[in-house]
Design a protein around this nucleic acid. Structure first.
Length: 548
RNA sequence: GCGCAUAUAGCUCAGCAGGAUAGAGCACCUCCCUCCUAAGGAGGGGGCCGGGGGUUCGAAUCCCUCUAUGCGCGCCA
């Protein structure tokens, strides 16, 4: 695609060089909305002023002068439309895809530059509820996209394994805890403790004091009892998280959570003091960000403990030293926008010129019909249950539609997960959405199963047609409309991946794949495949799926 | 109160570094399994692109303003 645009720009350049540079010509070229308007179009509005003619006349005149054996040139109104030679298109694109196979779309453009994708970042001792699925799917997808483009991707699960919450849980455990019970039911047991605590401290503030003391003991005194409990809570939680991660198929390169940075807290505080950024206020230490038009930030509590933001400052500095990141992406819900804006502002004030390489990749919230999900009130559904239910419902549906199928369990697993994944990745990141079972496990239309179904169709054709790669292909068999549209779309993959990476927007890729699948199904309906060796087409379709 | 985000078909959403007739899916109505798995395909109805101003030859797209919704705003993460 890029190549084509470039070639076309070169053809146009001699006619336009007085007015536009080669780059400008390339940028001006656009994809027409309708098929009858060609494959690429050059709008002449920009030229009207400098050439002092109406765009219509310019387009008309130019279209008569330009000629190329690769493109057919037509003039429609103020546009010059270019129609590519179909046989050549087929040969260019198919050769590219078939030679790269599964690697089609991947590239070296990342030059191995380090890109950090922080995602999931589970809060130890709290459950992974279904609101977390969004961040996990988005993060995991971005991680794969980043890798595909030749960047050195680093997935970090910035565990919430520190902070006053641990004081709360320890307090609750000391009062009402039961070791066996927790061993038995896992994170649920810890969550119960958390809920007990909230209830009790609402009535009696002294519990909160106790919690503060425990966290101080953990952070400053390295109290052995506190440390041991902390470690245990972490183990119990991680065991459960890993089960979910495995089910979803996402991976991490590092589990360096907040506690990991605890030793750096004194140095960070010292650095902030030296850079004269800290102000005393009510016994706490704050940073004034009013010149950035932001609210003040507390970096040390009146108890002398660190906070979330303090640890994030340390984490950013550590990551820069350790990985020398090119981009440091935080895949975190949009409710934390202010936090990350403040974090960046502080890093800027500290004089780190890489502050704007840190990016908050925010995403909208998942709501229930009843409203926002809150661990505090315990009104949640465990993520694992959601996944299992999705699989079960898929299984039921198979039983209904296709009872004689083999491997029903495995298929249900793949289709159920695919449905969930597509549901999470198809909308723009920033949108909130309300969780709804019917839509999530719907199999018709723009859904995960549609993509998978399409892929299955491809595979089936390859098998039945006894595809033999060594026979090669002949582009002249691939010139009817549906083939051409499909080929054209396939050629777009690299540029889609690039912009998905730049914008950190997986939806660009999922929607693109949906487009490919739709075009394939159209092609499938219109063209009979098992006639000659058009099987090529399908093989690379399968490859496109492999990327997803 | 202040800040940030969102607003497009009955529902869920694309399109938004201005450009040719505003697009999908679901739902609704017609057709298509003697033909590569119909979880599919072809077609139809359905839109003051939240309201109002402005910039421009041209605005769903850019600017201003209002409204509605969501999120956030010092010792949670």
């Amino acid at each position: 695609m890029k190549k084509l645009k470039n070639e076309l720009a070169l053809i146009l350049e001699p006619f336009l060089k007085e007015y536009l540079s080669l780059e400008e010509i390339e940028e001006t070229l656009e994809l027409p909305k309708f098929a009858e308007q060609g494959d690429l179009a050059f709008p002449c509005f920009k030229l009207a002023k400098s050439m002092r003619k109406s765009p219509h006349i310019i387009a008309q005149e130019l279209s008569q002068e330009i000629s190329s054996d690769k493109f057919e040139v037509k003039n429609q109104g103020p546009y010059i439309n270019f129609y590519i030679n179909r046989q050549e298109l087929a040969e260019t694109i198919l050769t590219e895809i078939l030679s790269k196979k599964e690697d089609y779309g991947s590239s070296e453009e990342g030059q191995n530059r380090p890109v950090i994708i922080e995602y999931s970042s589970a809060n130890i001792s709290k459950e992974l509820h279904f609101g977390h699925i969004r961040g996990i799917m988005i993060g995991s997808s971005l991680y794969k996209i980043t890798k595909t483009l030749g960047y050195k991707a680093i997935a970090i699960n910035h565990l919430g394994d520190y902070g006053i919450n641990f004081g709360k849980i320890i307090t609750a455990y000391k009062h009402w805890g039961d070791k066996e019970h927790i061993e038995k039911i896992g994170v649920r047991g810890l969550l119960e403790l958390y809920l007990y605590f909230n209830k009790a401290s609402a009535e009696d503030p002294s519990y909160m004091e106790e919690a503060r003391r425990w966290f101080y003991k953990l952070e400053e005194d390295k109290d052995p009892e506190a440390l041991e409990l902390w470690k245990w809570f972490k183990d119990v939680s991680l065991k459960e998280y890993n089960r979910v991660y495995k089910l979803i198929g996402c991976t991490f390169d590092s589990y360096a959570g907040e506690a990991f940075y605890s030793d750096m807290m004194p140095d960070i505080r010292q650095e902030l003091l030296e850079k004269d950024l800290i102000i005393e206020d009510d016994g706490a230490e704050i940073i004034d960000l009013s010149d950035e038009n932001l609210p003040n930030v507390i970096v040390t509590t009146s108890q002398g403990s660190s906070l979330y933001i303090t640890r994030d400052i340390a984490a950013a500095i550590y990551r820069k030293q350790e990985y020398d990141f090119y981009r440091n992406c935080y895949v975190v819900g949009s409710e934390q926008r202010l936090h990350f804006t403040q974090l960046k502002a502080i890093l800027k004030k500290m004089g780190y010129d890489w502050w704007d390489q840190c990016e908050h990749i925010d995403h909208g919230l998942v709501m229930m019909e009843t409203g926002k999900i809150s661990s505090r009130d315990g009104d949640n559904i465990f993520l694992e249950e959601v996944i299992q239910t999705a699989i079960q419902k898929t299984r039921d549906s198979i039983e209904e539609r296709n009872p004689e199928l083999e491997d029903k369990d495995e298929i249900a697993r793949q289709v159920g997960l695919g449905a969930l994944a597509y549901r999470e990745l198809s909308n723009s990141r920033v949108k909130d959405y309300t969780f709804n079972w019917d839509e999530t496990i719907s199999f018709e239309g723009e859904t995960g199963p549609y993509l998978q179904y399409t892929n299955v169709r491809c595979q089936s054709l390859l098998t039945k047609g006894a595809y033999d790669e060594s026979l090669g292909f002949d582009g002249s068999h691939l010139t009817e409309d549906s083939s051409k549209e499909l080929l054209w779309e396939l050629g777009l993959l690299p540029s889609i991946l690039t912009s998905a990476f730049e914008k950190m927007e997986p939806a660009l890729l999922s929607r693109y794949l949906m487009g490919v699948a739709k075009l394939f199904n159209k092609f499938y309906a219109q063209v009979s495949v098992i006639v000659d060796n058009k099987e090529e087409k399908n093989s690379k379709l399968a490859l496109v799926k492999a990327v997803s």
